[in-house]
Write a protein that binds this DNA or RNA. Structure first.
Length: 581
RNA sequence: CGGGGCGUGGCGCAGUCUGGCAGCGCACCUGGUUUGGGACCAGGAAGUCGCAGGUUCGAAUCCUGUCGCCCCGACCA
């Protein structure tokens, strides 16, 4: 391919709107163009990279025994009503509008994911356990009504996703969900590893969609929105939403201070009260009231800690959990919001592990505009249930005692053990070996392809531009033909181009009539892993320049040595850049 | 949804406070010179100043409404 016959709109300046590196570089290198909030066109160069990611994903999914199909973006809302997800997804579910009443548009949604559709298909066609296990996948455009798209292609309303769904008749044993999950987990490692990404698999929170196990694949980068929590000894990694912490050191004991009620007029926050009473937030007990499965539930954490709702939900063994309304809080405590405390509260209370070590604490008095000091466990109130229900913070340790570190990261893949949530809701069953109908036991497995591409750029760029991994670079090699008016330069450039192309190497010939510096800057911005420079200056002493983008190393070679050397470097990079081996 | 910012040629911006010819840099077109690290000279094309209404002799500029985009937060199967 010749540059002058291709379409690469590079730009020296990045748009003011772009904040994260991948966004800036994707626009400057002419990979994408924004059409509206959360929707991007992939320009030819960007599309090439995306297609390469797609090819790797497809290849590894096929290798893992998954079978590709394609499902529509348009779904009948009825299926979503049956699984209760119209309400659960809320505004995230994109609905066609413009119709009136019950016309087809208002009964149609654009799929954010395909559990409902695939389960319907399984219900229709899979009648016997003998047809199981099976894993069906697609690579398809998804729509989600994200409230706030951001960071370029990292969070969009329309994106390309590989979604796979596995069906099983049992959890354990050959052909069971556990085995299918393991296969996908390993396929994901291979996929991200082949892409050269510095990925970390972590325990994830399976969230309100249910299911009993889940892992996310994270790539550390400041542009991310999630937090990766890792133990220093690298034996533990989890999403911040999920990360468990070891109990703090120390033993419980009762303090000596008298229980004293103090007026705290209008001071309803931890910060206000601690400042007013001249104490530290960590001396206070934060009392948060929830509505859990329609019952009130009180969570106690230290003033400098945050309640982690997913951990609390698991610890409490409830399925729904939401913050209580002011009405409920006032009814329960008899005080305005901000003055709740555990002393004298008649209700299920779960205390965080760290709270059990506190003494002479300060809490709300369950009386508007009052707090109490000198609160002690055992003497002033009982803790019947305690658990790890707070979000990990700097200084915490992993369950094995190794200190935790925190990194921002983006999620590029997610695997779930779904169980029977969808098959049960849609009454999708097959007959087991005893002839009894059983709901399918399911797993689902997603990869955001656009995010792989963006994550690669986040992970691999420098101040000059992108430094693509070899396997997803839109072109593996660029030939900068300097002095394009020299016949020898042109014929030799073209010859090298043709020979590389014949070897199956993706090569772009920069045949523009431009000055050398201009071409080099563009080549570095776009980030071709290898650059061949053919110019009359080099040819004068019979050499051609070959430069490696990432390392900046360059070598001078006689013309006939260039093609074999490039071939070697391409192969070497494909292997050495892998991160899963 | 709450808070903040911004809409002026393809891109980056000035001009808005204090109403009076719509400007600059990059990119683009023509001609010439130039060619191993984003060249130079000369000429040129390109803008309903987001949109609608209002005030005014006159609006990018003032007023009202509205739409869009970005950032922080909330939310995120």
């Amino acid at each position: 391919m010749k540059w002058t016959e291709f379409f690469i709109p590079t730009s020296k300046e990045s748009p003011a709107d772009a904040v994260v590196p991948s966004h800036k570089l994707m626009i400057r290198a002419g990979l994408v163009r924004q059409v509206c909030a959360g929707a991007y066109s992939y320009l030819p160069l960007g599309y090439r990279a995306l297609r390469k990611v797609e090819a790797i994903v497809r290849e590894e999914m096929n290798k893992a025994g998954a079978i590709e199909l394609n499902m529509p973006a348009m779904h009948p809302i009825e299926l979503w009503e049956q699984t209760g997800r119209v309400e659960a997804m809320g505004d995230v579910l994109v609905r066609l509008g413009g119709g009136t009443g019950d016309d087809w548009r208002s009964r149609t949604v654009l799929g954010p994911t395909h559990e409902e559709i695939i389960t319907e298909h399984a219900k229709a066609y899979i009648n016997s356990y003998k047809q199981l296990p099976i894993n069906l996948y697609q690579i398809q455009t998804k729509f989600r009504g994200e409230a706030r798209p951001k960071s370029g292609v990292l969070r969009t309303r329309e994106f390309l996703m590989k979604d796979a769904y596995s069906f099983h008749v049992a959890k354990e044993g050959p052909g069971g969900l556990d085995e299918g999950y393991e296969k996908m987990y390993n396929a994901y490692r291979t996929i991200f590893g082949r892409c050269g990404l510095p990925f970390v698999p972590v325990e994830a929170d399976s969230g309100p969609i249910g299911g009993d196990a889940s892992h996310e694949f994270m790539v550390p980068t400041d542009a991310g929105e999630d937090y990766l929590v890792e133990s220093q000894d690298k034996t533990y990694a989890a999403n911040l939403e999920r990360a468990e912490v070891a109990p703090l050191e120390g033993s419980a004991s009762t303090g000596t201070a008298e229980l004293t009620e103090v007026p705290t007029p209008g001071l309803a926050t931890i910060d206000d009260v601690s400042e007013f009473l001249n104490c530290k937030p960590r001396q206070m007990i934060k009392t948060i009231i929830f509505k859990a499965d329609e019952e009130p539930l009180v969570a106690l954490v230290r003033g400098d800690h945050e309640v982690n709702e997913s951990k609390l939900r698991r610890a409490a063994g409830v399925s729904s959990l939401e913050q209580a309304t002011p009405d409920l809080i006032e009814k329960l405590t008899g005080a305005n919001v901000g003055f709740a405390g555990p002393v004298g509260l008649e209700c299920r209370i779960i205390a965080d592990q760290a709270v059990t070590l506190m003494q002479d604490a300060i809490t709300g008095a369950n009386k508007t505009d009052h707090h109490i000091t000198g609160v002690n466990i055992g003497r002033d109130f009982e803790i019947k249930e305690s658990a790890d229900i707070r979000t990990a913070v700097e200084g915490d340790k992993a369950p094995n005692g190794s200190p935790l570190t925190f990194k921002k990261c983006i999620e590029i893949g997610h695997v779930f053990k779904l169980g029977t949530k969808y098959s049960a809701a849609l009454d999708a069953t097959c007959l087991d070996s005893k002839g009894k109908p059983k709901p399918f036991i399911m797993g689902c497995y997603g990869i955001g392809l656009n995010r792989i591409m963006a994550a690669a750029i986040e992970a691999f760029h420098d101040d000059k531009g992108i430094t693509w991994p070899m396997v997803i670079a839109p072109f593996q090699v660029v030939i900068c033909a300097l002095d394009t008016r020299e016949e020898e330069v042109n014929t030799l450039s073209q010859k090298i181009h043709d020979e590389l192309e014949a070897l199956g190497i993706d090569v772009l010939l920069d045949d523009r009539d431009a000055r050398p510096g201009f071409k080099f800057k563009d080549a570095e911005l776009v980030g071709f892993p290898l650059r061949i420079t053919v110019g009359k200056k080099g040819l004068a002493d019979g050499t051609i320049d070959l430069q490696i983008r990432r390392s900046g190393e360059s070598e001078k070679l006689p013309p006939e040595a260039v093609v074999p050397r490039v071939k070697d470097l391409v192969e070497e990079a494909i292997n050495s850049e892998r991160t899963d081996l």
